[in-house]
């Protein structure tokens, strides 16, 4: 019994161990890796990805999947920049309306995603993938393929203003993570996500309106994608259709590497934080250690398999699909 407990403990903490192992590995190869300035760089690139990954965590906890993030981010980023520029171009004036504007757009797109999935009974995989394409098309239509620049120094202080070596956006993202944690652990909705993911039949039988819960889950995810879009714009000062690029792969990878099971019901936002850090430490570490380009994608793939292998209890799975 005690060995089982130990094995379970190791499995639970495996992602954290992987993260520590990676940090030690990269530090051994290049001691510059282990510095406050470099950690700040890693957290800057992690911030937008964390918001997106937290959003999709809620959906994955329910046992569904959401692949619409790239389209949603593109639309939210472009709308955010448009609204900001229309209202004077500064977040210190009435331009702040761009923030609720982008969040509303994210919530709307998420809700549409959920409604299409639940009401039309289309698998979440297909529904969300299609809506992602629609989002990309919509943002292209709005911008005509052009980039929108954001040069508001107040808004860009999210990147440029630092407290204890870390930029403001890192603290803002941590605050959002706390809110996500609260939703997950201390609200009925959060607990119901686990109930549906753990066993939908049981949840239905005990009177839970699963369809409504799913729509709420997708809406919540959309809001977090919008937050990711705002941080992505803060990081680069550019809003365009390409803003959402690559977020699908990195966010889903981060969630899985962090230890949240794709079948639903286990994991959570803190696991996602660890997963996002692992993926970004690998990205940064490979450049810092000077690994050749052609190795990097392959090494990322191997590390992902390794991390997922360590964090899942295969004995509890009757079949793998």
């Amino acid at each position: 019994m005690s060995t089982l407990l130990t094995a379970d403990m190791i499995r639970k903490w495996a992602p954290v161990l992987v993260l520590i192992g990676l940090v030690l590995l990269f530090t051994t190869i290049n001691p510059h890796f282990f510095s406050l300035r470099n950690f700040a760089r890693i957290t800057i690139s992690s911030t937008p990805a964390l918001m997106v990954a937290v959003g999709v965590t809620f959906v994955i906890l329910m046992g569904s999947i959401d692949l619409s993030m790239e389209g949603t981010i593109a639309v939210c980023a472009v709308l955010f920049a448009l609204i900001l520029n229309i209202f004077g171009g500064s977040i210190s004036g009435i331009g702040w309306l761009a923030i609720p504007g982008a969040l509303l757009a994210g919530a709307f797109l998420g809700a549409v995603n959920g409604i299409v999935h639940v009401q039309l009974k289309i698998p979440s995989f297909m529904a969300s993938l299609s809506l992602g394409f629609i989002g990309i098309g919509l943002s292209l239509l709005i911008t005509g393929g052009n980039r929108i620049l954001i040069d508001d120094p107040v808004f860009r202080s999210l990147l440029t203003f630092r407290i204890m070596g870390f930029p403001l956006m890192v603290y803002a993202a941590l605050l959002c993570l706390m809110v996500a944690w609260f939703i997950q652990d201390d609200t009925v909705i959060g607990r119901n996500f686990y109930a549906v993911g753990g066993g939908e039949d049981l949840a239905r039988a005990s009177g839970l309106n699963v369809g409504r819960l799913r729509i709420i889950g997708f809406t919540l995810a959309g809001i977090f994608y919008a937050l990711g879009a705002i941080f992505a714009v803060a990081r680069l000062g550019i809003a365009e259709t390409e803003t959402g690029r690559n977020f699908m792969f990195t966010s889903i990878t981060s969630v899985v590497v962090g230890g949240t099971a794709l079948r639903g019901g286990s994991g959570g936002v803190w696991s996602t934080l660890v997963g996002v850090l692992i993926v970004n430490v690998i990205g940064n570490g490979m450049v810092v250690t000077g690994l050749p380009d052609y190795f990097q994608d392959g090494v990322l793939g191997i590390l992902v398999i390794f991390a997922v292998y360590l964090s899942t209890d295969r004995r509890s799975l009757s079949f793998i699909k």
């Binding site: 290049n30 510059h32 890796f33 510095s35 300035r37 470099n38 760089r41 800057i44 690139s45 992505a232 990081r235 680069l236 550019i238 390409e242 690029r245 690559n246 990205g283 940064n284 490979m286 450049v287 810092v288 250690t289 000077g290 380009d293």
Partner: peptide, 22 residues
């Protein structure tokens, strides 16, 4: 160093950060 950033703004941002550390 020579590093591919795939014509991508976000990847170039990350690669440049890595160069600064290295």
């Amino acid at each position: 160093a020579v590093q591919a950033a795939d014509w991508d703004t976000q990847k170039a941002n990350q690669v440049m950060s890595g160069f600064l550390t290295r």
